[in-house]
Structure formats: structure tokens, C-alpha cells
């Protein structure tokens, strides 16, 4: 297993504007695969999971609509996570499955990603799977949504990527302490803390 993280310092990706969501995903996946041995793109899958998704892009578009302004075409293109997955597929010559998921079980972005990765490997849909969890620090709407869901956003924009290989056992999640109260996430990683803990264990560093 190879892991990588990216934060708001991720470099911009040409054609993607306003939101850090896609650059975070782009940087985390590139860092993850950048240190991996070359693989067969046709046998590689990328699975993205987030709870709220790219709220910045959706909210920017919605606010301009409400204000009576014309929609930016680039926001249309990037409003689905498929866009950055497609960009990564071009960069990395990946022609296997590209999935994007939304899961709202507290702490379960990691669990759902690992389950999906294992499913793709075990059913022979792919020989290696890049799992990427991404969540933005919450703006107004996302904060209200997280409160209603009982989930916690990270304190800062964050993406974590893991590469699973058919020949490696799918890792078990480290045991996490009870979910923190929404108002005070002590570790700051929110819905991604399972992935961060997994990455830290893999790299032998504290989360």
C-alpha cells in the first residue's frame, strides 16, 4: 500500500477554477502513483469518496444563479468529480473504472473506500485501485449539512490517497476513538480521519 496526502497548498490544475477540490485530488493521486511502480492503466481503477463533495464549485454556481449572473462554463465542467478523475485518467493513461461516491456514515469514508477497493480487486475488475478521500473545510451550506448528517468536516481542505494492489492484503482500518462531537474535532481531519490514520500507520508517523 502506498499513501499520499495533499492540502490547500496543492498546485492549481489548468482548467479547474475557484475550488481546491479538484487540485487536492489531482495532487494526492499524482503523489501516490508517482512513487509506485508502473502499472497497467487498463487494469487500474480510481475511486473517489467524499461526504459533501465539491461544495465550493456548486455553491459558487448557485450563488451566481441566484444573483442573476451567467454561469461560468468551467464551473459546469468541474461540477462533477468525473472531471478531475477524467483528467487523472488522461495524465496517467488509466482506462479502468473511475468511480465517485458520497457516503455519510461518520468516519466511514475510509471504510467505504476500502470495501469498494477490495470489491474491485476481488472481482477482477482491476489489479490495482487508487482510493482517494477528499473533503473541503465547510462553508455555510456544507457546515449546515455536516451538522444535520452528524459528520465532521476537516478543519482545512484535505485529500488522502491510497494505492491498493492485488498482491497486497487490503488493510484494516486502525481503531479510532469515539467520534468527536461535531463542534470540536480534536484531530482536525473530520470525515477523513480514518484515512489519515491509515496513511500515518503506513508511513510510520503519528497522524
Amino acid at each position: 500500500m502506498i499513501t499520499a496526502m495533499s492540502d490547500a497548498s496543492a498546485p492549481p490544475v489548468p482548467g479547474f477554477v475557484e475550488s481546491t477540490f479538484s487540485p487536492l485530488v489531482h495532487a494526492a493521486v499524482h503523489r501516490c502513483l508517482g512513487v509506485a511502480p508502473p502499472g497497467d492503466g487498463a487494469r487500474t481503477a480510481i475511486v473517489l469518496a467524499s461526504t459533501v463533495g465539491d461544495a465550493t464549485t456548486l455553491d459558487t454556481g448557485s450563488r451566481s444563479l441566484v444573483a442573476g449572473q451567467a454561469h461560468q462554463p468551467l464551473l459546469f465542467m468541474q461540477s462533477t468529480a468525473n472531471a478531475i478523475l477524467g483528467r487523472l485518467a488522461v495524465d496517467l493513461a488509466v482506462t479502468g473504472p473511475l468511480l465517485s461516491l458520497s457516503t455519510a456514515v461518520p468516519d466511514d469514508v475510509a471504510g467505504e473506500l476500502l470495501t469498494t477497493g477490495a470489491l474491485l480487486l476481488e472481482t477482477g475488475e482491476a489489479d490495482r485501485v487508487v482510493l482517494v478521500g477528499v473533503e473541503l473545510a465547510a462553508g455555510d451550506r456544507a457546515a449546515a449539512a455536516h451538522r444535520a448528517l452528524g459528520t465532521v468536516p476537516p478543519a482545512e481542505d484535505l485529500a488522502v490517497a491510497l494505492l491498493l494492489d492485488r498482491d497486497d492484503p487490503v488493510p484494516h482500518l486502525p481503531e479510532l476513538p469515539a467520534h468527536p462531537p461535531p463542534a470540536a474535532p480534536p484531530d482536525g481531519y473530520g470525515t477523513l480521519r480514518g484515512l489519515v490514520a491509515l496513511a500515518a500507520r503506513n508511513q510510520g508517523t503519528p497522524p
Partner: peptide
């Protein structure tokens, strides 16, 4: 079946 183009974003 699921497969990607690896051709263009849009």
C-alpha cells in the same frame, strides 16, 4: 462493464 476513455475531461 465499466471503462474509461483516458482522452479528454469533457
Amino acid at each position: 462493464g465499466v471503462a474509461g476513455d483516458a482522452h479528454h475531461v469533457a
